[in-house]
Amino acid sequence: MVKEKTSKSGRRHFIGWSLFTGLVAFLGMLLYPVLRFIMPPKLAESSQNTVKAAKVDELSPNSAKTFPFNNKPAILIRLPNGEYRAFSAVCTHLQCTVQYREDFKMIWCACHNAKFDLNGNVSSGPPPSPLEAFDVFTSGEDILVSKKV
């Protein structure tokens, strides 16, 4: 009789203990995602109106680089005089990615030999409209590119 009682209370004790452990784990499981959620991710902006395109000393005059801007390629060009310009790198003809040609100082699309001048306007070839131009500005060590407002 006494033995049965102790075994029963032992069982109760065991259930209580496991419930307590379970609850702690459960609360941890609830809290962990929440804590992770409230800490902002590395890229702390949801939509990119501005993006870091390059470092200040990255591009020498008369050169360029392409970089992703809102999921699409964009091109940052450093003119021979040191000035920066940025455009969408998506050709307005068939959406190929354009590149900067140091030899003739124009933006060039390899797909159909289209040429754009350094203002993004079509100077020859099939594209029906100019490349979208972006604003470029420097912030500390970074060259930032943003959508024109």
């Binding site: 992703p68 999921n71 699409k72 390629p73 998506v90 068939l94 959406q95 190929c96 990615t97 390899a110 797909c111 159909h112």
Partner: peptide, 17 residues
């Protein structure tokens, strides 16, 4: 899928070319 989009653009470029 952001990086993938850029790779995908390259593939499309190649197709047009």
């Amino acid at each position: 899928v952001k990086d993938e989009n850029m790779t995908f653009t390259n593939a499309n470029d190649a197709l047009v070319h």
